[in-house]
Nucleic acid binder design. Structure first.
Lengths: 138, 138
DNA sequence: ATATTTAATGCAATGGAAGTGCATTTATTG
DNA sequence: CAATAAATGCACTTCCATTGCATTAAATAT
């Protein structure tokens, strides 16, 4: 079990108080969050810092960005074993039309998609929209 | 073979010069277009008109909106037999990382996606990114 | 330990795209 | 031809993403 500090260092990310806080915030969330979500959680911090922290995490593959079709970028921590850079490991995301939450369905891998002759597939984005378990249970 | 006028009327859309032009513009494109693309093609027209025309077409199921992950909405004419409102008929889209064009792969239907217990799937968005046939042929 | 260098943070501003309210023009109906 | 309804054009607004630059904090070299 490695500490967050060790994890960041192993990815060549300098450890700062802000980064630790943001990491912990993401770790506590089960859902993908927007920059605004983070902003609201850290009102004392500047939005640019939060933005750049997330971008750093993304580059270093600590988080992955999710485009769930709402037009607003969301982010979620990569899990251990989440090789988001490898095509065959992509999981899908579920966006709830009721509560607007976006959830990583990590265990649901995206099936191999065939593309026509001449096309080269590098990446796949799959978002299922509907009603999530919490909302459908009402 | 019905005329564009007849098509629009059959969908309860009033025929105007602008709408005919925009329809023809879309029909001539093999790729999905952004509002800016349309704007550039019709510099004399107001952006709002183009925007609302596209929205009208979308509501009446003349075009479908595509979210290809670039953050910019794109639109493409529905083909005959493109029942974009029916989940099982969804086709996938291909976004070229080289030329940034987005193409409807109408013949490629999206496989049935299983979601966990309690989740209700209403809609699926699948975008494959990579290199398109034109760019890979270089 | 201190100077030097490098990276992180904060502030201000910009730009792109989506969307809305209202006045005006154009088309449709009585 | 008058009355009504919809389409168009203009002016804004809002929201989010992104960048430049000055400042502060951290890491490295001396």
């Amino acid at each position: 079990m490695q500490t967050i500090e060790q994890l960041l260092e192993s990815k060549d990310i300098r450890v700062t108080a802000m980064r630790l806080l943001i990491y912990k915030f993401l770790a506590n969330k089960q859902i993908a969050v927007t920059l605004s979500d983070i902003e609201n959680a850290f009102e004392k911090a500047d939005r640019t810092t939060l933005y750049r922290t997330i971008k750093t995490f993304e580059e270093k593959e600590i988080v992955h960005q999710i485009d769930d079709g709402t037009g607003i970028n969301k982010y979620a921590l990569c899990e251990s074993g989440c090789h988001c850079e490898i095509e065959t490991d992509l999981h899908l995301h579920f966006h709830c039309n009721n509560c607007s939450e976006t959830i990583c369905l990590t265990e649901h891998k995206i099936p191999q998609i065939k593309v026509p002759e001449g096309f080269v597939s590098e990446n796949v984005n799959l978002v299922v929209k509907g009603i999530c378990d919490k909302c459908s249970g009402q």
